[in-house]
């Protein structure tokens, strides 16, 4: 498969008044053409920061990419000037955001907001861009696009707004679409519609998608591959089957266990005890050690290396070391617990 995006040892820090927070600490990722990669993890694990880094949207100050490379078709995006980066944003790489209620400019018509990117990147005239905007609205399933194109965001419902946001993102046929929790703020019934729309458009437009979410149901529905992030690092990657059926990292086990299941009667949801590490003072060793039920002394001292479980699955855990005791994943991960 062709590599579209390759992230090598990415590091991002934020300076606050009190401390320097190392939000992303050496992330390696690959996204192939036309595939969907899901990045999962809890709040503060660094998944949103990673996606913003790809877009060059880390606010500086306080944020800064302090190391690593982001290679998009061989070009290192971190080295590009702001002006050159603008040619990628919205053109080669686009992004959709979490909250459609706030991610559209309230005082500009929908049509203008879609047309802006088209005029900038494809040099369309005003009327051409307007025509294309109508087509795009139609494409994302907004009825009556001729009329809607002249309306303002407050005249759209949440789900419809997210469709508009998707239309803006896909306006210039980007090769990569980053979706940062695209359905979190929507009603459950609307969620499914939006996910179906994204899948449908991906097939039509041959776009690769990075899907950032903490909803494993969405992952199972959408993704080809999964990267699990914790404490600013990727702790495990693999195909969706590998992560759901043969997970190796205790954190992945915990994530899967905490997912509610339909076919088993559970009196309560299983939570992972403890809280994520303070990334202003990141732990020396494995970030999950403090919450890991299988933690060993070595875990607190040294960060484990990635070991290959298969061609497609890597995991960073000392349990993979031959010297470590053999630990079986808990039954609560509910193998086969995929929602679809």
């Amino acid at each position: 498969m062709d590599k579209l995006l390759e992230i090598k040892d990415l590091q991002v820090t934020f300076k606050t008044y009190a401390a320097t927070v190392q939000a992303v600490r050496g992330v390696n990722l690959t996204v192939n053409k036309r595939e969907t990669l899901a990045i999962v993890g809890e709040s503060g694990s660094g998944k949103s920061v990673t996606s913003k880094a790809i877009m060059g949207l880390i606010p500086n100050p306080p944020g800064k990419i302090t190391g690593g490379e982001i290679l998009f078709e061989g070009t290192d995006l971190t080295k590009l000037s702001e002006r050159k980066m603008q040619k990628y944003r919205g053109n080669e790489i686009s992004m959709i955001f979490q909250d459609p209620m706030t991610s559209l400019n309230p005082t500009m018509t929908i049509g203008k907001q879609i047309a802006e990117g088209l005029r900038k990147h494809q040099g369309l005239s005003k009327s051409e861009a307007r025509k294309r905007a109508v087509q795009l609205l139609d494409l994302v399933g907004i009825p009556n696009p001729q009329v809607r194109v002249k309306q303002y965001p407050h005249e759209f419902s949440g789900g419809m707004r997210q469709r508009v946001v998707i239309a803006i993102a896909l306006a210039c046929n980007p090769k990569l679409l980053i979706a940062d929790e695209p359905t979190t703020a929507l009603d459950v019934t609307i969620q499914a519609q939006i996910l179906d729309l994204m899948k449908d458009l991906q097939a039509k437009m041959d776009t690769a998608i990075i899907l950032i979410t903490h909803d494993l149901g969405v992952v199972a529905n959408m993704a080809h591959r999964v990267a699990v992030m914790y404490g600013g690092k990727i702790v495990e990657t693999g195909t969706v089957d590998e992560i759901f059926y043969r997970p190796k990292h205790p954190y992945t086990w915990g994530l899967l266990s905490s997912m509610p299941k339909l076919h088993t009667r559970q009196s309560e949801l299983l939570a992972i005890p403890g809280t994520p590490p303070d990334l202003a003072n990141p732990p020396k060793g494995c970030p999950f050690a403090a919450r890991c039920p299988h933690a060993m002394k070595v875990c607190t001292e040294f960060m484990p290396d990635y070991s290959d479980v298969s061609d497609t699955q890597q995991v960073a855990c000392w349990l993979q070391d031959e010297r470590a005791p053999k630990v079986e994943p808990p039954e609560t991960i509910g193998v086969g617990g995929r929602t679809r």
Binding site: M55, N105, P106, K120
Partner: peptide
Amino acid sequence: QDYIVTATAKGLSKASVIFKHSVRN
């Protein structure tokens, strides 16, 4: 506001983002 990030993510120039989206509103 989030829509400023959206505007930047479209690849608009800094001047466009500041004058068309921020100052206007």
